[in-house]
Design a binder for these strands. Structure first.
Lengths: 159, 159
DNA sequence: TTAAACTGTTTACCTGCTAAACAATATCCT
DNA sequence: AGGATATTGTTTAGCAGGTAAACAGTTTAA
């Protein structure tokens, strides 16, 4: 399986050689990201909440009446990109766009009871799957990992 | 100006509240990945080698005469997705598709001297930028980070 | 020799974004 | 006051980076 297909008789097996790439944080980050994201997706089922929709819902539940602009900023995406996400959440009945008395430009995102329940359920599922995926890491290692990733984030999200 | 725009007078500032999201490895991974990738891109210049093209070149240089199938497998992408990447590298004159005596199906990727030089230069640049980006992490922390990311990878790349 | 498997490729598609323009609304500046 | 300036949500067009399915050519297995 891992051995090179026997297309040629003396095929030197390069599979275990450590490449340059492996020494880059960026490369390892990307590969790990792909795996964790895939795990997320089949944790919640193939066509349920996508990671970004889950994230938006999470923040909407935690910060009810947040505006779309603020939410976009928290998520690190553009306002325009958030529209489809909020559309989806509204379509699912997980939140509604409410007008704000003082400012008629902003749409306050208020989660519905259904949205809060769905989120509570999703968050438990995701947590469980992430825990299983990261079973090889001790609790301390997981905390360290998060701490180091946040350090990188704080370097880049300065504004 | 991290403070919320003064749209309303008593706008509680949610910016420093720790959200649920921050506790997920997946979320932190994604955010960090975006930052490192962006750093990579403006390390090499806006329209130079994209990360994935750099990665492919790296492996082609390190494993000359690797086949596209093997390269795709190493990169964790589909064969079909690799075609455009190899096209680009060939277009740049960084490698060529060579026929293999024993098997007329496979295209052996052989880096040119130009390709090897370009890679050597790129790798130095990327290393320098990554070092700068990760200056807040000690060398030990960087090693730990890579070790933990590889642990996640080894969990997901089992096949 | 026929069936099965593998290689590279094309094509059609999907996801998750950005950037630019826009109308509506709000705020700032004298 | 009132005009410039800014902000909010939105649409549209486009890009990057991938997948999946089908295919011809070639090789291996039965």
């Amino acid at each position: 399986m891992a051995a090179g297909a026997k297309v040629r008789e003396m095929d030197q097996d390069d599979d275990d050689v450590i490449s340059d790439l492996e020494q880059f944080v960026g490369y390892n980050l990307k590969r790990a990201y792909v795996i964790v994201q895939a795990d997320f997706r089949n944790a919640l089922g193939q066509d349920a909440l996508a990671p970004r929709v889950f994230s938006a819902l999470s923040l909407a539940v935690q910060f009810p009446h947040i505006s779309q602009s603020k939410l976009a900023r928290k998520l690190g995406i553009e306002r325009s990109g958030l529209v489809a996400i909020v559309d989806e959440l509204e379509g699912l009945g997980y939140l509604s766009r409410a007008t704000v008395p003082g400012d008629r430009r902003v749409q306050a995102l208020v989660p519905t009871e259904k949205g809060r329940r769905a989120y509570a359920e999703a968050v438990a599922t995701v947590r469980a799957h992430e825990k299983a995926l990261l079973a090889d890491l001790t609790a301390a290692e997981q905390q360290t990992l998060i701490r180091l990733l946040r350090k990188i984030r704080s370097k880049g999200e300065t504004e």
